[in-house]
Amino acid sequence: MKLYLVPTPIGNLADITLRALDTLKQVDAILCEDTRTSGVLLKHYQIQKPLYAYHQHNEHRVLEQMIEQIRSGKTLALLTDAGTPGISDPGFLLLRECIRQGIAVECLPGATAFVPALVQSGLPANSFVFEGFLPLKKGRKTKLEQLALEERTVILYESPHRLAKSLAEMAVSFGAERQAAVSRELTKMFEETRRDSLQGLAQHYTQHPPKGEIVIVIEGKQPEKKRRQYPEEEEE
């Protein structure tokens, strides 16, 4: 009676771990964000298990049913289309309910897109903030203004058709010359990381509309240097 959160490759099928494969072979059933996408991975590794759809459009509706299956003694694995469940993907509701009901949960280590994007951006990786996807409308401007003041490196996910517009908005909020990197199609054949100012990146992707999954990494705001006060400048 247990739930496993199993990270899956973000592109290259070889990036799955041996432990993840062993787990998928041993569980009673697998919950999938998209059974077709997960089916490709499972077929590649010759794993045959019952598959159930579990995604953002049905997770509230099927949550109780999944909990009942686990409480009946079954061990389930949760997969998303790519990466680690719960990171800008379905999984949090099920995880939280399992914890609330005392059901054992185990998250395996594995692939997630923002880590390689951060490391190869060339921007500081010792301290960062991951925000996932920005709000589409309500609260978007306020969120950008807040992130513009963040001194840690900022990491965002974005869809390809919104990338150029988002970068242009960021150039206004963060400053045109703020350095950033855009990674797309990570681990795939046409993987690319482009490093430039926000303005330069906005111009490039306006002229060259991208394809694939996108990660944006933005330099944090430089802290203001305090002017040193010498003894003779101190007030009597």
Rank of each mutant, 00 (worst) to 15 (best):
C98H: 03
L149T: 15
L93R: 12
R228V: 10
S166E: 15
L31M: 04
I10V: 12
V40E: 14
L186E: 12
G110C: 08
Q69G: 12
I16A: 01
I67N: 09
M1C: 07
E64T: 13
P223C: 11
P223V: 07
L118D: 13
I155R: 00
A176P: 01
Q203T: 09
L95P: 05
E236R: 09
E185T: 09
A111P: 03
G175I: 00
L3P: 00
G73K: 01
A14Y: 00
F92K: 13
D196S: 08
H161L: 07
P124A: 15
N58H: 02
E219N: 14
I216Y: 05
D15C: 10
Q146C: 09
E106L: 07
T206H: 12
L198A: 03
K165P: 03
I47L: 05
L163P: 06
G83F: 01
A168G: 02
Q222R: 15
Q48W: 03
L95M: 05
K165T: 14
L42D: 05
V119Q: 14
V27M: 10
K221Q: 15
A164E: 10
Q222I: 12
F133D: 14
V215H: 02
Q48C: 10
A113R: 02
P135K: 14
N12L: 00
I216L: 13
R152P: 04
P135E: 13
E191I: 01
V154F: 03
K141N: 09
L18F: 07
S183D: 07
R96Q: 13
A113Y: 03
E64R: 14
E235Q: 11
H204M: 03
E236G: 06
P209V: 02
E191Y: 08
G83N: 07
G11F: 04
E59R: 08
K43V: 07
R19Y: 04
K138Q: 15
H161T: 01
A104L: 05
L42T: 06
G220P: 00
A82T: 11
E97A: 07
F174T: 05
G11C: 03
K188E: 06
M189F: 13
R227V: 14
D89N: 04
K226D: 11
R71A: 15
R162E: 08
